[in-house]
Design a binder for these strands. Structure first.
Lengths: 194, 194
DNA sequence: TAGATTGTTAATCGATTAACAATC
DNA sequence: TAGATTGTTAATCGATTAACAATC
């Protein structure tokens, strides 16, 4: 809508586009504090700004990545993150052979350099893409280094001080969710057919 | 507990281990249908079996992957999936140069072969790891080929028939969640300090 | 003015948590 | 028996949805 030069967009239209109910859209947009005009809708530019600010997409944040394996490397090369304020400035791996190399433009360090680099770079957020069994001990190292937010891609339920925020992205759980939903869908179909 | 030879485990202990409330554990375990013994707890072997069956970890499921880029390749090489019943049997990419190659042991095909291969392999689930802008049209192709479950790693909100299940794993949303939680945590701290 | 759309207040819903009798 | 633990039933909570007056 912004590209098309529209000044306003209605919650009704957004809802239609996203297959949601208008009330859902209005409630969500209320969080941003943007006020709409009855009959016209919400001011497009203001709304985009507010949402981007709310989601933290307006400013780049430097983060580190721990575990430069398959998944870690993929995330370092994931271009879409740039659009959403995420900048990976350094990676760490327990495999000392990787230290000194560069993956998708990101320098890889030894785990021993972690605390020093975190202080030097002043980063507050870490992406955790190591194997699950070593997750807790690595999280402890991150917390000790002063990290305040952990984006956790392992299956481990991390125990951290309450000052530290953990966002877990457990891929296997996501897949299990898909399977369970498909299964219950199928059961429902069979049930109704009998 | 199974390795240690214990026959029973109490919900209280599980809760302690996972930093949950006992009632939460009891409610969740009730879904599996396993019945525990007062004073002793739940039978360990039976419980593990039931949970694995519920989550679909007991049987391997063949799936395809569409979009053999950074993220797609990482998922093909992700060993942990094997433990959770997920087996990627073929990959597809719009880049015809990749067709015929093998990534982490998975054969890559042209998008043109998708429908044929889906029928030949009899797969019902697809992992979608392409760029967001092309997500909807690719989802349409998958649906047309008979796919019933889509594990969606793009930021797009896919529109599919109600017979098809979509599980979206939007990485950027996950990161936004982390940022918003950290922000509100910080605001709360400042608020209490004033 | 008429009607679409907002924002607020109330109602519904589902999930989480609490309470407690049953039981090994 | 005493006490820990389960499973069920009720209460609480937060989020989603509905209803509707305000307004451009």
């Amino acid at each position: 809508m912004q590209k098309e030069g529209s000044k306003y967009i209605s919650g009704t239209l957004i809802a239609q586009e996203l297959s949601l109910e208008p009330i859902q859209v209005r409630k969500d947009l209320a969080i941003t504090g943007v006020i709409g005009k009855p009959k016209k809708g919400y001011p497009v530019n203001t709304l985009i700004d507010a949402i981007e600010r709310f989601l933290g997409w307006n400013s780049m944040q430097d983060v580190i990545l721990v575990g430069a394996g398959n998944l870690g490397s993929a995330l370092m090369g994931h271009q879409e993150f740039r659009l959403h304020g995420l900048h990976i400035v350094a990676a760490f791996d327990k495999n000392t052979q990787k230290a000194g190399t560069t993956i998708h433009g990101v320098r890889v360090f030894s785990m021993n350099d972690l605390e020093t680099e975190v202080h030097k770079l002043g980063v507050k957020v870490a992406i955790l893409t190591i194997h699950s069994p070593a997750a807790q001990e690595t999280a402890d190292i991150l917390v000790k280094a002063g990290i305040l937010g952990i984006w956790n891609f392992t299956a481990a339920k991390l125990k951290v001080p309450e000052s530290v925020v953990v966002q877990t992205e457990d891929l296997s759980s996501g897949y299990a969710m898909l399977c369970v939903t498909m299964q219950s869908r199928q059961d429902a179909d069979n049930g109704s057919a009998s």
